[in-house]
Amino acid sequence: MLELRLVQGSLLKKVLESIKDLVNDANFDCSSTGFSLQAMDSSHVALVSLLLRSEGFEHYRCDRNLSMGMNLGNMSKMLKCAGNDDIITIKADDGGDTVTFMFESPTQDKIADFEMKLMDIDSEHLGIPDAEYHSIVRMPSSEFQRICKDLSTIGDTVVISVTKEGVKFSTAGDIGTANIVLRQNTTVDKPEDAIVIEMNEPVSLSFALRYMNSFTKATPLSDTVTISLSSELPVVVEYKVAEMGYIRYYLAPKIEE
């Protein structure tokens, strides 16, 4: 038996909007740690890892570890029927073939049950090793979204380079080239507006902008985004989900042949 009650139901709505265009079907795993998901896009270029810790739920009951295969498009359709202020409860029976989403209005005068069919999904779980990253950039998520959107009007690939000078986002296309440089800036009124560049070693990597733009669907979840880069590894683009967890996107680099 599984019963997870999330007072801030809008978080789950935003989480689905952040992953449904990248991944069609995925297994949600439920354990005493929390509600999690790991899935790759169909071409295995990007991987998304979601964790919503059990402590973040008002009520968290998960008697046995449970893996529930869901079509994310269908799940998104159902969650769109929840109001932004609604409390969302996820319910499922061990071995059952459905999951129920219950939406309660804040004043408790409207209660809705949406039951969704589960599916069998054959997914491979990858081990993500802990890594020391060469450079880590934290910036306002809206700024990162703007940069990815702007550069994708010029080119298909972004080169992200971190040096002593700052972090540079570059692209090139048929009509010309673009370079956007951000410098560290911590003298801001609000900490979420800061640009923090932690450079252990300079790094320069190329990535497909199509995927970066897809990751920025998570912008409504968090004021800040963290980009971790190492020359030997996929980039990690991380958005915190309130105090309860994170969405991490891993994107494999483009490599010169």
Partner: peptide, 14 residues
Amino acid sequence: GPRQSTITKFFDKA
């Protein structure tokens, strides 16, 4: 131009 690599090149099956 550069070639797109895949995640499975970097991360192994758990």
